[in-house]
Amino acid sequence: MLFRSEEEINAWCERTGQPRGETLTLAQTWELAQRWYHDRLRPDFRGRTPDEAQRIFQQLGLTSPAWSLKPADESSCR
């Protein structure tokens, strides 16, 4: 979801009752999009394993629990 600022995200969440999630800048989102989609049109693309997805997130510094593919109770023990 696209917003003009973090403050507008907060206001929208408060107004709609939707959960406050993770935020990326446009540049971060572009970097993520490139790593995620660069090979999407290849005939041999078969999707990403959880480990591959996790590696992409980690390479971009996305290490909060929201980006974890481990069960919530396991990640909370770290």
Binding site: M1, L2, F3, R4, S5, E6, E8, I9, A11, W12, C13, R15, Q18, P19, R20, G21, E22, T23, L24, T25, L26, A27, Q28, T29, W30, A53, F57, P65, A66, W67, S68, L69
Partner: peptide, 30 residues
């Protein structure tokens, strides 16, 4: 998301994205 009638133009050019300091919200964990 909070101003559906407000359109904005962004570009991707020569490997870079150009916008207006927008932020992208991911409401749910992956």
């Amino acid at each position: 998301a909070d101003a559906a009638n407000t359109a904005v133009t962004l570009t991707v050019r020569d490997g870079e994205v150009h916008g207006h300091d927008e932020v992208v919200h991911f409401p749910l964990p992956f």
